[in-house]
Design a binder for these strands. Structure first.
Length: 344
DNA sequence: AGAATTTGACCGCC
DNA sequence: GGCGGTCAAATTCT
């Protein structure tokens, strides 16, 4: 992937920019109706807008020949290498072949679907769960759904933090070697998004289960969802360290009606995928959800991603995206970034 | 019926 | 032997 950015990357860029505009519109609506909008929603929108900018810039820098990696969208939380170091030591100390490992901490906000906040767009399949010594919550083990079909050995572990239940530590191991990018809505997301959750208590331990069955178990109205989502990314030291942002949580592509209420699928938790090779795509999913859902708020609520639900809920304005000063012009997917003056 | 999750069992490392 | 990670049968969901 050198030289000119691939089509999908450009599309992502356009999507991100488009999303930024839509979010700005959303924000405006909120500002015009401060009374009916929640602080969380406005805060979320603001952050998301900034995030979109960062993403777009990062993508530009990233794809620009000779450009340095975007410093970027660095996550709010400063990189913390302690854990990672430890992880690597552990890995190294063992005879096992050292595996690329990267840990990130994702903070999810109650109310908002955990899923959307944690999803990285890749398809993950849970293959185990274990109680970890000293940890209050069990650790979930996930592997790429393309494991068999494409031999993708990417795996990730998700564990809720003891200190802060809203923080999930996601450890990625091995890069995705599969073709399926964490992209768009059409990404087949396994049931992850709608996974069954027989045990209510599991909400705290198994991310995927968070709210999984919410629809069944919690009749509460969607508008109850609030939000703001923030990601505390601690890149634990992997050599490859793609710029990661607070909102880079593409929810698992397919938003399932069932997960809206906070179900967080393992997919979710993969903010920055496992390697730089993929991170740029990560956001696609969330983007799709946004761009597709917000404008179509009229569509079934079930289609709303947790985040969107949160945002729109506070909005109370189904007609978002129209008649706004921001204009409704769309970015041209074919827009060329080769414009010399485009880069600062 | 096919696919995904759950969960106890199994395996390897320390 | 304990613990973390993975396997696989049973179960559940679409």
């Amino acid at each position: 992937m050198e030289g000119s950015p691939p089509d999908w990357e450009l599309k992502n860029l356009v999507k991100e920019l488009t999303r930024g505009r839509e979010l700005a519109e959303q924000l405006q609506i909120h500002l015009n109706n401060v009374q009916s909008s929640s602080h969380e929603a406005r805060d979320f929108l603001l952050h998301r807008i900034l995030y979109s900018y960062d993403q777009a810039l990062s993508m530009l820098n990233f794809s620009r020949p000779g450009a340095t990696l975007p410093p970027a969208s660095a996550s709010p939380g400063s990189p913390h290498s302690d854990d990672s170091d430890q992880d690597f030591k552990d890995q190294a100390s063992r005879k096992r072949k050292a595996v690329e490992k990267r840990t990130e901490k994702v903070k999810v906000w109650e109310g908002i679907g955990v899923e959307g906040q944690l999803d990285d767009g890749y398809g993950w399949r849970k293959y185990g769960q274990k109680d970890i010594l000293g940890a209050q919550h069990p650790r979930g083990y996930y592997r790429c759904t393309n494991r068999h079909s494409q031999g993708c050995m990417a795996t990730k572990q998700v564990q809720r933090s003891d200190d802060d239940p809203t923080i999930f530590e996601i450890t990625y191991k091995r890069k995705h070697t599969c073709n399926s990018r964490p992209n768009s809505s059409n990404t087949p997301v396994s049931r992850t998004a709608s996974m069954p959750d027989p045990s209510p208590h599991s909400l705290s331990e198994n991310p995927q289960q968070l709210g999984a069955r919410s629809e069944q178990n919690q009749p509460e109205p969607l508008f109850k969802i609030q939000t703001s989502l923030r990601v505390i990314t601690h890149d634990l030291g992997t050599k490859e360290n793609p710029p990661f942002d607070p909102f880079n949580f593409p929810s698992s592509s397919t938003i399932n009606p069932d997960n809206i209420m906070g179900n967080y699928s393992p997919n979710l938790l993969s903010p920055a995928a496992s390697g730089s090779d993929y991170y740029p795509i990560t956001m696609n999913v969330i983007n799709d959800n946004y761009t597709e859902l917000i404008p179509n708020f009229h569509t079934s609520e079930s289609e709303l991603s947790p985040i969107v639900a949160a945002v729109t809920s506070a909005t109370n304005s189904p007609t978002v995206g129209t008649n706004l000063p921001f204009g409704s012009s769309e970015f041209d997917p074919n827009f060329s970034f080769g414009n010399p003056g485009y880069y600062p």
